[in-house]
Write a protein that binds this DNA or RNA. Structure first.
Lengths: 238, 238
DNA sequence: ACCTGAACACCGTTCAAGT
DNA sequence: ACCTGAACACCGTTCAAGT
């Protein structure tokens, strides 16, 4: 009696709605994601979606947690530096696959389970590696700022590949009227160099990441001697 | 004959439209900024705006350059580190005053004159301070990522002042069901510490900024010896 | 020539009518 | 009880009609 539906259109579910919404946003951007368009792609009437998500904001909550689920949770087995490096690279990769998610990863009012578990793993890794509470916050703050900020820049800048960036820069350079070139000599000089040598986002990200990790290494209290959380310094943390 | 209009409503101009749009976005956010609402606040019919801006995107271009005009251009007189510190703080302040602008500062396809002049000053300061072309790009990339990323986090996170953040965290903590507390022990531990000691965005930003500046100091070729651009190392930059 | 109201093609969501 | 079409209050922008 209860024969499986063999059609290519499985019945709607919250998971399927979220999955389709992510796919739509990946392809068309956040502006292209409307409840009406999403419904059409799923072959249902717009109001049918509201059986599976409370509203668009609820849908976005689910989409963001889908992205979090793709982020590698740091494990303290690797040592904090390798763990933080891998998590940062993994977070950036997820944000490259889902550019619409940049700026939404920390903003949801009701964080989902994947979000919570990844943050818990981050805190656990740092605390177990001997960072104090306060320093754990510093590390999280500066690393997240760097990764989110870099992803934001890349999402936002007008070129993709190294070659493309060189070409874009070169074209812009040629199109620059002489009076502008005279007003912004240093900017033009650097853009010309980029046009010559190309601009590789991945390499740039890794360079900056090591720079930030070096800074964190210095921040770690007792980094040169102890391997576990030392007693707090007399003056507090300031 | 041509008597000055003494009314409180001066005639419309591009500058006045942009100014009003910035004020509206500051107060109501980007979502609250519609051409219709903006027109109403200016006491004109919606279509009247299109005499002064080509479309909404053109309006946003103008708004972003208004924010750039508030950013202090770095001067190499101060030394690169102090100059970069001041520019970063100034950029963040502008983004705090105009939160809607986070994520739009580098994304405009037709950058305005204030944008170009600030970027030119940045490049000029770094080049004059002895950074190579390539290292100048690294410095710009990592500093901008940090400032934009931090501003994005702050815009996005649900609390404002240190006290408020403590209270918010404490309230969330109390509202946490025991089964969740057991699943995310490290996260809860850190949040509890934040609830106790408070979370000061300004202090956090400055801490991370010095960390990044320390990293940049290491990046600078010839930083220990020369004060002007050294000849490039034999192996290139790697 | 200038200005602008109505219209077009959208949006998220409510709500009442239909099965 | 469930589903859904029409409706509501928006949106940016076009375009033709009015002065």
């Amino acid at each position: 009696m209860s024969s499986e539906p063999v059609t290519s259109r499985p019945t709607l579910s919250t998971a399927r709605v979220i999955e389709a919404a992510v796919a739509l946003a990946d392809r068309e951007g956040l502006d292209g994601l409307s409840m009406r368009e999403l419904a059409q792609r799923l072959g249902v009437v717009p109001m049918a979606l509201y059986k599976h998500v409370a509203n668009k904001d609820d849908l976005l909550d689910g989409m963001v947690d889908t992205v979090w689920a793709e982020v590698e949770a740091p494990s303290s087995d690797l040592g904090w530096r390798e763990a933080m490096r891998r998590r940062s690279i993994s977070l950036r990769s997820a944000l490259l696959r889902h550019r619409w998610a940049v700026g939404m990863m920390e903003s949801r009012m009701r964080p989902g389970p994947a979000n919570l578990s990844r943050h818990d793993a981050m805190m656990g890794c740092l605390r177990r590696s001997g960072f104090s509470f306060r320093t754990t916050v510093h590390v999280t703050s500066v690393l997240d700022a760097y990764v989110y900020g870099f992803a934001l820049q890349q999402k936002t800048l007008p070129f993709g590949t190294p070659e493309e960036s060189g070409e874009t820069a070169a074209r812009k350079l040629e199109a620059t009227p002489p009076e502008l070139a005279a007003m912004y000599p240093h900017l033009l000089e650097v853009v010309a160099e980029l046009a010559r040598a190309g601009y590789d986002y991945d390499a740039e990200f890794l360079t900056g990441l090591e720079l930030v990790l070096d800074g964190i290494e210095q921040l770690r209290p007792g980094w040169a001697t102890a391997d576990r959380a030392p007693r707090p310094p007399i003056g507090g943390h300031g």
